[in-house]
């Protein structure tokens, strides 16, 4: 499958390109045009247009129910699991429309990984949690290769040191922060190009949150990360660009610094200064 091949080449060649993320002209990874989403009668998202650069962190902020999570879940078509959800418009990853009937949603999700709000490790061993994805996609031909992928992923998620001696223990036995890093390891084990994070720190304590934020920073080297967050400080800390959603519309998008220091829209201003939210 040529698409699948390109995943790995992109991932492998990324370190070279990653160093100059800010200087070089932006390489666009995700493009959304006129995206509308409705749940049954209720429209949740209106005409969203956005471009997301490769190997950077894009933060979505906005009050509860503003549609930021909905939009995030459109990017790997997780919304497909909700029967009444309808998506129109165009979302492209690397220039290909992901809602094209030709696209296999399963392969799309291998390229666009996801980390959820609450850590949700499988009720299996730590090793099995990470190995599941690679096995599913036939990424290893033997046990040694699989071991290597598991170790590499756990290292990248900076969890290896803590769990290397107890890989056979259930993933559900880890602490909340460790569980969330395990979920990140699980997501990066399939070498996605994009990782979606849906409020990944909302269930964690500040120390664990700090670890995850550090990790996000490191991951930018290789991955395009889109993070939904409730915390504006977090958005300011981890992201290069920020998009502000309100009432189902994308109000403003731009470099994070600019959004927080000099927003162009009144509503953005009101939100970041705490008038509502």
């Amino acid at each position: 499958m040529p698409e699948a091949l390109s995943i790995r080449t992109a991932a492998e060649s990324s370190p070279a390109a990653a160093t100059a993320a800010t200087a070089a002209p932006r390489e666009i990874k995700v493009t959304a045009r006129d995206v509308n989403v409705s749940y049954g009668e209720k429209q949740a998202l209106f005409d969203v247009d956005v471009d997301i650069a490769a190997r950077s962190v894009m933060a979505f902020i906005g009050p509860s129910g503003c549609g930021k999570s909905t939009f995030l879940r459109c990017i790997n078509r997780m919304n497909d699991t909700i029967p009444i959800c309808r998506v129109t418009g165009r979302i492209e990853v690397d220039g290909r429309d992901i809602y094209d009937p030709e696209i296999d949603v399963v392969q799309l999700r291998a390229r666009v990984g996801m980390v959820f709000q609450k850590p949700n490790p499988f009720p299996k061993s730590i090793y099995e949690n990470v190995a599941y994805g690679p096995r599913l996609h036939g990424m290893a031909t033997n046990k040694a290769e699989l071991d290597a992928i598991v170790e590499e992923s756990l290292r990248r998620a900076s969890l290896w040191k803590e769990v290397s001696d107890r890989l056979e223990q259930p993933g559900t036995g880890l602490s909340g922060g460790q569980q969330q890093r395990l979920c990140i390891a699980r997501a990066i084990a399939v070498s996605p190009e994009i990782i979606l994070m849906d409020e990944p720190c909302s269930a964690l304590d500040p120390i664990a949150t700090a670890r995850i934020e550090e990790l996000i920073d490191e991951l930018t080297e290789n991955f395009t990360i889109i993070i939904v967050t409730h915390s504006m400080q977090q958005a300011a800390r981890v992201s290069q660009r920020t998009a502000f959603f309100h009432l189902g519309r994308l109000i403003e998008e731009g470099p994070t610094e600019q959004i927080f220091s000099n927003p162009k829209d009144r509503r953005t201003q009101d939100y970041i200064t705490g008038r509502f939210g």
Partner: peptide, 18 residues
């Protein structure tokens, strides 16, 4: 069984049946 388990699997590219 909480739906988060299923979502996690879908998230790494498992099909619904998988």
């Amino acid at each position: 069984v909480p739906p988060s388990i299923k979502e996690a699997a879908l998230g790494v590219g498992a099909s619904h049946q998988q």
